[in-house]
Design a protein around this nucleic acid. Sequence first.
DNA 1: AGGATAAGTGGAGTCACTCTAATTATCAAG
DNA 2: CTTGATAATTAGAGTGACTCCACTTATCCT
Lengths: 208, 208
Amino acid sequence: MPKTITPFGQSLRERKKLKTREAIQREATRLFQKQGYEATTIEQIAAAVEISPSTFFNYFPSKEDVVLYDAYDPMVATLFESRPSDEPLSVSVHNVLEMLTDTLERDREIILARSKLILETPDLRARLWSEIERAQVFFGAMLAQRTGGDANDFEFRVVAIALVAAMMEAASEWVRLEGRVKMGDLMKRALDSISADSMLDAFSSRRK
Amino acid sequence: MPKTITPFGQSLRERKKLKTREAIQREATRLFQKQGYEATTIEQIAAAVEISPSTFFNYFPSKEDVVLYDAYDPMVATLFESRPSDEPLSVSVHNVLEMLTDTLERDREIILARSKLILETPDLRARLWSEIERAQVFFGAMLAQRTGGDANDFEFRVVAIALVAAMMEAASEWVRLEGRVKMGDLMKRALDSISADSMLDAFSSRRK
DNA sequence: AGGATAAGTGGAGTCACTCTAATTATCAAG
DNA sequence: CTTGATAATTAGAGTGACTCCACTTATCCT
């Protein structure tokens, strides 16, 4: 048993591990972009990183996870949770996106490339949706917290999934537009579309 | 070149093909339920149907498709398209579900079993979402038709995906409740939740 | 009965992924 | 700085989905 708890990433072991993890993601992404996701084999990635194929699976449970794994995910979650719980969720969404504007701008190229890869590759796209189910649970909890209800209620689940799906479409649109517009604005438009009148309009057509 | 166009499923060939297709689905589903989706191999299915594994892939492009393939899909689409285009979409949804009540009641057990399998199996669940993207396009077109807009507009895509996601959640709930309630009612509740006030409430919490 | 056409099949191969047992690197402590 | 524990890396064998292809067999049309 170690005498002192070694801070994360401080020991040689931890640093090496992190470096390897990043190297795998970097090389994998590079190869995916160069020759396509499906045309790239684990063997090729392993060769590029100079590790054995076995080691690859020590770091990522599947080929898909190399792309899907998002380091910013927990950060975004934290940002949301730090928002005052009496703030309307739509406003929170916008605010969180505002806080992320700089990061989004700085890493635009990388994020865009990665997102495109996901959107264009059926396998990855399918897997994305299971990430979305995690988001559904998260936002369901947020909604419940804000209204004092039970997150497991059918209504919350419905609103949460619709919300997340809409945000997903906004993100796709952002990618389609090469990140030329602010993601926060797209999210706002998306949320506006499904809430309030416009949704009803679309629903009930010329009746109103 | 044949002199007359042979009606679908009339010739020996066609009838046999249909029978085999059904046999594969039947046996596959049976095995999946008995021993789980992943634990069942193509070889086992082929053996049960008394065909070769090669033949399996002549009928279904992948193991997933045996479960996902839905014969009722085009029927539902037709029902929607036969609805008057000045009918609000939410009403159309309800009406279509009403028309399907009998079928849903009659085939309840089979549909339930199949749906459970899909919802419980991560691989199938992920694939379901790509079906949903097809539904998004379909409903996007419906919305556009009803409002006279362009189905490719961002707003339509957003509303369509939110709509479909909500319906999806309603369907899941139906499965969870073992089909004890009418699917149409769940859909109605789901659509009510995302449209109009309740959504706004959830969004803006105690402010209103 | 005939050849055209489609369905079924066997076999070889690829690739993602699993499991296991052995090897090597790092670590904590004396 | 050596040692025993622990974690990381690896090779290798195996499984199962899926592809490709050449070949046989069944159905069809005339």
